[in-house]
């Protein structure tokens, strides 16, 4: 997270005081679906001790063609998505997103 904030701050020579930003990024693309994640980050250096830093990670799998809802298959899709999302959240938290 600090890496990300530092990375954004480089645009202003790291003189960044507050952030209220949304980023949507595509993560993976397959024939049947693509994965993406909405990121929302809010923090203010001036009120950090009171409000903390708010992060919302909204990972989504978009199917190119709607799939028929069938309990076994749909729930398996949900569990697979949960695992993929967890993996992405871990990489995001670890700063493993190719920051140089």
């Amino acid at each position: 997270m600090n890496d990300l904030i530092d990375h954004i701050g480089r645009l202003w020579d790291n003189q960044i005081i507050s952030v209220d930003s949304k980023f949507l990024s595509e993560l993976d693309e397959q024939e049947a679906y693509y994965d993406r994640c909405h990121h929302q980050i809010e923090f203010s250096e001036e009120t950090l001790s009171e409000t903390g830093c708010r992060i919302s990670l909204d990972w989504q799998r978009m199917f190119r063609e709607p799939k028929e809802l069938n309990f076994a298959e749909t729930f398996e899709d949900v569990l697979n998505c949960k695992e993929k999302a967890f993996q992405y959240f871990e990489n995001f938290g670890a700063g493993d997103l190719n920051y140089d």
Partner: peptide, 8 residues
């Protein structure tokens, strides 16, 4: 269904 979302 056409989308599954997982949020933190």
């Amino acid at each position: 269904y056409d989308r599954i979302g997982v949020v933190a």
